[in-house]
Computed example of a mutant assay.
Amino acid sequence: MRARAAVPAAVLLALAACSGSPRPNAPSESNAPSESNAPISPAASPAAGPTTSDSPSPTFTPIPEPTTTNTLPPPPAPTRAAPSTAGDLTARALPVPAGWRTVARKGGEEEGYLGNGTWVHERDPRYAAFDVITIGCAPVTRDDYRDPTAALEGTYDRHGEPGIGLVLQFASATDASAYFDLYRAQAAACHGDDAPVRIDVQQRQGGLIDRRSYPDGDWTEVGNVVGRRVTLIILSDPGHRIGTGQARRLLAAIR
Rank of each mutant, 00 (worst) to 15 (best):
Pro27Asp: 15
Thr244Ile: 11
Ala173Asp: 09
Val222Met: 07
Asn116Cys: 06
Pro78Gln: 05
His159Cys: 09
Ile135Val: 14
Leu72Phe: 01
Trp219Gln: 11
Leu114Thr: 01
Arg184Pro: 02
Arg80Ala: 15
Thr69Asn: 10
Phe180Gly: 04
Pro50His: 05
Ile135Pro: 08
His191Cys: 02
Ser30His: 12
Pro97Lys: 08
Gly136Leu: 03
Ala185Met: 04
Val132Leu: 15
Glu35Thr: 03
Gly108Ser: 01
Ile133Met: 06
Ala252Ser: 12
Gly107Thr: 05
Ala38Gly: 01
Pro62Arg: 09
Gly115Cys: 07
Phe130Glu: 08
Ala5Met: 14
Pro97Val: 03
Tyr156Val: 00
Pro56Leu: 09
Glu221Tyr: 12
Arg158Ala: 15
Ala77Cys: 08
Gly99Asn: 10
Thr51Phe: 13
Asp124Trp: 04
Ser34Leu: 13
Arg249Thr: 09
Ala173Met: 02
Arg229Thr: 03
Tyr113Pro: 06
Ile234Trp: 14
Asn224Lys: 10
Ala14Ser: 14
Pro46Arg: 02
Val167Asn: 09
Gln246Phe: 09
Ala47Leu: 10
Glu122Pro: 06
Gly245Glu: 14
Val222Gln: 05
Ile199Val: 13
Ser53His: 01
Asp193Val: 05
Asp193Thr: 10
Arg23Asp: 14
Ile242Leu: 15
Trp100Cys: 07
Ala26Thr: 06
Leu12Trp: 05
Arg229Pro: 08
Pro64Phe: 07
Leu12His: 06
Ala43Asn: 12
Asp131Pro: 06
Ser172Gln: 02
Ser34Cys: 10
Ile242Val: 13
Thr61Gly: 13
Ile209Gly: 05
Asp200Ile: 04
Tyr214Gly: 04
Ile209Trp: 02
Leu72Val: 01
Thr231Ala: 14
Gly108Lys: 00
Gly206Val: 02
Ala16Cys: 06
Ile135Glu: 15
Ile234Ser: 15
Ile133Glu: 02
Ile40Lys: 00
Ser41Gly: 06
Cys137Phe: 07
Ala6Arg: 03
Val230Asp: 05
Ala195Met: 00
Asp147Glu: 05
His159Ile: 13
Asp237Ser: 09
Ser36Phe: 06
Ile164Ser: 15
Gly108Phe: 00
Gln169Met: 10
Arg228Trp: 15
Ala43Asp: 12
Tyr127Met: 10
Ala16Leu: 14
Asp181Gly: 07
Thr79Pro: 03
Pro56His: 08
Ala5Asn: 08
Asn37Ala: 15
Asp194Lys: 05
Ala185Ile: 04
Pro27Gly: 15
Ser177Pro: 01
Phe60Ile: 11
Arg248Phe: 06
